[in-house]
Amino acid sequence: MRGRIAAGVAIIAFIVVVSFFCASPGIADGSLRLQSPSLQHIAGTDTLGRDLAGRIGYGVLVSFSIALPVSMISLILGIILAFAFSGARTLNTPFLMLSDTMKSLPPILLALFLNALSGPGMVKLIAALSIGNIPNIARLCSARVIVLRSDGPALAASLMGISRGRIFIRHILPFLMPYLGAEAITIFSASILTEASLSYLGCGVPPMIPSIGSILAEGRSVMLSAPWMILIPAVVLAAVGIALEMIVSGLSESDSASH
């Protein structure tokens, strides 16, 4: 298991480092439009004549810098929600309502509207992407929290009169972590993909900034005549996906092994 996690992390690290070094938004040049991969342009050029390899590198960094806050925010807010509502009985009405509300607002619609509020922006994008995930986290947490509370050290602590907050931080949170680790990674990769879909509809990242999603969205219209514009970023995404999967499965194996 250790090996798998390490391998996954290594792949991600490799991709990030390479991206860091070759990241560049590129300069538009009509004469270089849609050139297939060559020595000067390892991944070819895009519809505006920009070097694709540089843009993919930049795009990886941008996609990651969106996905990371989204998973963090979803995680933190989800945990907070679970904590806030775990005081009363299990599935009580307001909690259910809130989580149903968030689930029913399709992120696409939300992003379209947020876009229309005053134009695209990274903050709005992150907000739109986070909202859909929070109820899931909260639900997962809730379930676990209930179990953890009614048992062992947490129960003892509550009988001794220790405040709920402290119980939460010392006895419950540590046990949530590995479980949520896998969830966080799932949200991470899902955010990259949802951002890609939003870019396709025209409300993803602001235009000058490439993200893997927007590169794919640009490339799909020339898919048949310039396949490298789709295939190369797709391979990068697949590599990221596989690496993340390795980390997740490594984590869950170690999680189940320790039980």
Binding site: G26, I27, A28, L48, R50, L112, N115, A116, G119, P120, G202, C203, P206, P207, M208
Partner: peptide, 17 residues
């Protein structure tokens, strides 16, 4: 924007529906 940036002008693009 790309042309402007290549001569050192800082350009921002807003795309809206």
């Amino acid at each position: 924007a790309s042309c402007l940036e290549s001569v050192g002008i800082d350009a921002e693009v807003s795309v809206m529906d």
